[in-house]
Amino acid sequence: MTTPPSEQDPARRDRSPWNWLLLVPIVIPLITPLYNADEPRLFGFPLFYWLQLAFIILGVATTTIVYRMGRKRSGR
């Protein structure tokens, strides 16, 4: 049996402190008191609707950072 290369390469892990960032877009959109209100409005959208739409940006930003940082760490 040959040894798979992954076992010869200890750098190949998914561990990174940056991963904790992923908790932000998981937890924030689930806190209803943050957004369950009408005011303030944005472009006519009540807070409930525009803020939850804005959480998409939060999700994209954090996952992108985690992806980039993870790639840097493993040198790939």
Binding site: V24, I26, Y49, I56, G59
Partner: peptide, 16 residues
């Protein structure tokens, strides 16, 4: 509107 937080939360949740 739960469909929105649902599909925001899912990707960071399953990323790893």
């Amino acid at each position: 509107f739960f469909a929105l937080p649902y599909t925001i939360v899912t990707y960071p949740l399953v990323f790893l």
